Simulated assay, not measured.
Amino acid sequence: MKKALFALLVACCVWAAWDATRPVDRYVVKVTAADGDTLWHLVGDVMDREGDRRDVREVIFYTKKISNLQGDLQVGDVVLIPIEASTK
């Protein structure tokens, strides 16, 4: 049992090291909020389109921070969405 857990731990460490060294493109996508838009949907749609695989909650946190958004999203608000997409 100890050998199996050790092998699993080593495999996780190797995967994490590989994942940390792969090339990533970092850029910001600028979107303007329209009527009925929510931050969750705007960020989620851009992440899907751009291939960002991070947790949407993490990206929303940084989106609010760099876009200086406080409170509810208003029509016309400029939303800056930080994207991290792996290069192919």
Rank of each mutant, 00 (worst) to 15 (best):
T32I: 09
N68H: 15
R26C: 03
I66E: 14
G76H: 03
D19K: 05
I81P: 05
D19N: 12
E84G: 02
D77M: 06
Y62S: 14
G76Y: 05
V28D: 11
T32Y: 06
V78S: 12
N68F: 08
L69T: 07
R53M: 04
A33D: 08
D35N: 12
R22N: 08
R22L: 13
G36I: 01
V56W: 05
C13M: 14
A85Y: 08
A4V: 08
K2E: 10
A4S: 07
D77V: 07
D19H: 10
E50F: 04
A85E: 11
C13H: 01
V59R: 07
W15V: 12
C12S: 12
V75T: 10
C12W: 02
V28R: 06
R53S: 12
K30Q: 14
A17T: 11
T32S: 03
D35K: 14
K3H: 04
Y62P: 00
K64L: 14
W15P: 00
A7H: 01
M47Q: 11
R53H: 10
W15I: 09
L42D: 04
G36L: 02
H41T: 13
A85W: 07
L8R: 15
F6H: 10
D25V: 01
V29A: 06
M1C: 01
K30V: 14
V59F: 06
N68C: 01
N68V: 04
K64W: 02
A11P: 00
V10D: 06
I60P: 02
T87Q: 14
P82W: 10
R53A: 12
V24P: 00
Q70A: 13
V43L: 04
R22E: 15
G44P: 02
V56A: 10
A16I: 00
E50W: 02
G51V: 06
Y62T: 14
T87R: 15
K88N: 09
P82M: 10
V75M: 06
C12G: 05
V46C: 03
S86N: 11
C12T: 01
I60Y: 04
E50Y: 04
H41Q: 14
M47R: 01
G44V: 05
V14R: 01
I60F: 05
A11F: 09
G36S: 05
V46S: 05
I83M: 15
D72E: 15
A11L: 11
I66Q: 15
D77F: 09
L80T: 07
L73C: 07
D35V: 09
A17D: 07
A16K: 13
D72I: 00
D19A: 13
R53G: 05
G36F: 08
V46R: 11
M47S: 05
K3W: 03
D55L: 06
R53E: 09
A7L: 07
A20T: 03
D52V: 09
T21M: 11
G44D: 04
L80Y: 15
D77R: 11
W40C: 00
D77A: 09
L73F: 08
D37N: 12
L69D: 03
L39V: 03
A16E: 01
K65P: 00
F6W: 07
